[in-house]
């Protein structure tokens, strides 16, 4: 059995991972996003369990490479990244800190409880103006905004526009 001295403690590994930026939204880290689900040693291999945000997100493989590289840079020689699908990732896992960072960066953070449910009756109520939720402009904080598209520049974002300062902005999709 290899010595424990060569195996940094979990708390330290989490601190290192907290410095690995998301490749598409570099102001937040992979731990801010909530996608690192576990770190554990299996003999002399560090197993990092990561869950994808979206099944087809092209950043997933880059994130895995970035995590492995960061850990190697900290002296961890053997790293294995494992994918875990369950429980599926939810934007609820974004830390409060991450939400503040997103807002400061110009991306409106997800609003809890607004995830798509596929319940058509609710959707139609929302379309007709009832039960609408307010996405605040990250630039001027106005609530006078409108959705331009349900999708945006990455799988995790939708496109909005502020009707006061007239700037378009991204909204971090709630799922």
């Amino acid at each position: 059995m290899s010595g424990n001295a060569a195996r940094p403690e979990s708390a330290e590994i989490w601190r290192w991972l907290a410095e690995v930026p998301d490749p598409e939204i570099p102001v937040i880290s992979v731990t801010d996003l909530g996608i690192v689900r576990d770190v554990a040693w299996q003999d002399d291999t560090l197993v990092v369990t990561v869950t994808p945000t979206y099944t087809g997100c092209p950043a997933t493989s880059i994130i895995n490479l970035d995590i492995a590289k960061a850990l190697r840079d900290h002296g961890v020689e053997r790293v294995r990244i494992e994918r875990r699908l369950s429980p599926p990732w939810t934007s609820e896992w974004l830390s409060a800190d991450a939400r503040a960072k997103l807002n400061a960066y110009g991306i409106a953070p997800p609003i809890g409880g607004t995830a798509a449910t596929g319940q058509i009756a609710n959707r139609i109520a929302r379309l007709t103006g009832e039960s609408n939720f307010v996405v605040r402009c990250p630039r001027c904080q106005s609530g006078n905004t409108e959705k331009i598209s349900q999708f945006g520049s990455t799988p995790c974002k939708a496109s909005y526009r502020c009707k006061d300062c007239l700037e378009p902005f991204d909204y971090f999709k709630c799922i």
Binding site: P52, Y54, T55, L85, S86, P87, P88, W89, T90, A115, A116, T117, G118, I120, R123, I124, L127, Q150, F151, K173, I175
Partner: peptide, 24 residues
């Protein structure tokens, strides 16, 4: 099967709401 379906269901709920909006 359950795990993949649970992951896909979240994405598809979003697709379904969008296509419903646009069809209406």
């Amino acid at each position: 099967v359950r795990d993949i379906a649970a992951k896909a269901e979240k994405e598809v709920a979003y697709h379904f709401e969008r296509s419903t909006d646009l069809v209406i």
